[in-house]
């Protein structure tokens, strides 16, 4: 097995390092203000389009060769995007980090209840709950039935089945 770095992977690697700039520009769009998931999604689409477009104009030897060359190059770009997504999710949705920020904004020590009340700049801890439930409801996995929350028989049950398969495949004993 040889260790020389393939020229066709240079562009995907170097170009992927510029994604934070694309994301910073897109996140300033007024249309996407406050919509963190959409900001990342749009930035990713712009990035992917620029990568494919740029790849077509590279000198010979630097362009991906054949279907498997494109596959490996796209996996490089995809790997970087997943790392950025993980960091973005932490910054925009991180539960513990949001609690640290609530403490940072307070001039004095806070009781646990006060941290909960000041969570997400005063939206309160219930916000995370309502937000997650709204997402599940919009996706058709749960529905409200009066004061109860019910699992939908098809999609909800199907997702739970996949979840149970994933727990078994990963060998997990405890989740959540």
């Amino acid at each position: 097995m040889q260790f020389s770095f393939p020229a066709e992977l240079l562009y995907p690697v170097i170009f992927s390092l510029t994604f934070p700039i694309t994301l910073a520009v897109v996140s300033r769009s007024r249309l996407l203000r406050g919509r963190n998931a959409a900001q990342f999604f749009v930035a990713s689409l712009v990035h992917l389009a620029a990568w494919v477009g740029g790849s077509l104009f590279l000198p010979a030897g630097y362009t991906p060769h054949g279907a498997s060359g494109w596959l490996i190059s796209s996996m490089v770009v995809g790997s970087f995007l997943m790392i950025y997504l993980e960091a973005w999710a932490l910054l925009s949705r991180g539960y513990t980090l949001a609690m640290l920020l609530a403490l940072l904004e307070s001039p004095s020590p806070l009781a646990a209840d006060a941290i909960a009340a000041r969570y997400r700049s005063g939206d309160g801890l219930e916000w995370i709950f309502r937000h997650r439930l709204a997402g599940l409801e919009a996706a058709g996995m749960i529905r409200k039935e009066g004061a109860d929350l019910a699992l939908t028989p098809r999609l909800g049950a199907f997702v739970v089945m996949l979840y149970r398969v994933a727990i078994a495949v990963f060998g997990l004993r405890k989740t959540g």
Binding site: I142, A150, A157, Y163, G176
Partner: peptide, 15 residues
């Protein structure tokens, strides 16, 4: 997602 997701945990408990 499987290990930490609150949403998936809620769905599982409903099930």
């Amino acid at each position: 997602a499987t290990y930490k997701s609150i949403s998936l945990h809620i769905l599982h408990d409903l099930w």
